[in-house]
């Protein structure tokens, strides 16, 4: 599976996730995020416009980097969540914890220094 498309901006990186983020595909997402962490990228924009489904394992991937990001003074913002995907975040109470914006432009706004 090819890595998810990324877009490098001045102060952050956007990652465009696609399809289902289930136990299998989230391994790919995990590897990609781990690469970014290693290269010192802590300001991240996750575009979910094309994500159809996310499982608990998928959510776990993002949660596992949350501490490291906040430690390093970074930030992660989610955008473009489909109602079904947002419901999962909401059910887990993550809408209170994570920065989730309806549109990409709002996310970019939040990531600007």
């Amino acid at each position: 599976m090819p890595p998810y498309r990324t877009e490098v901006n001045d102060t952050f990186i956007s990652i465009f996730f696609e399809g289902d983020l289930d136990a299998n595909s989230s391994i790919q997402a995990d590897e990609q995020l781990s690469q970014l962490m290693k290269s010192g990228q802590y300001r991240l924009h996750f575009d979910f416009t094309n994500v159809e489904y996310i499982s608990s394992a998928g959510i776990g991937v993002f949660l596992s980097y949350q501490d490291e990001i906040s430690e390093k003074g970074g930030k992660m913002v989610f955008s473009g969540l489909k109602p079904r995907v947002f419901n999962v975040f909401q059910l887990l109470g993550l809408d209170q914890l994570l920065e989730i914006t309806p549109t990409s432009s709002e996310a970019l706004e939040r990531l600007k220094v």
Partner: peptide
């Protein structure tokens, strides 16, 4: 009611 999963915020 709202509520966060266990182990998310440690």
């Amino acid at each position: 009611e709202k509520g966060l999963g266990l182990g998310i915020l440690r």
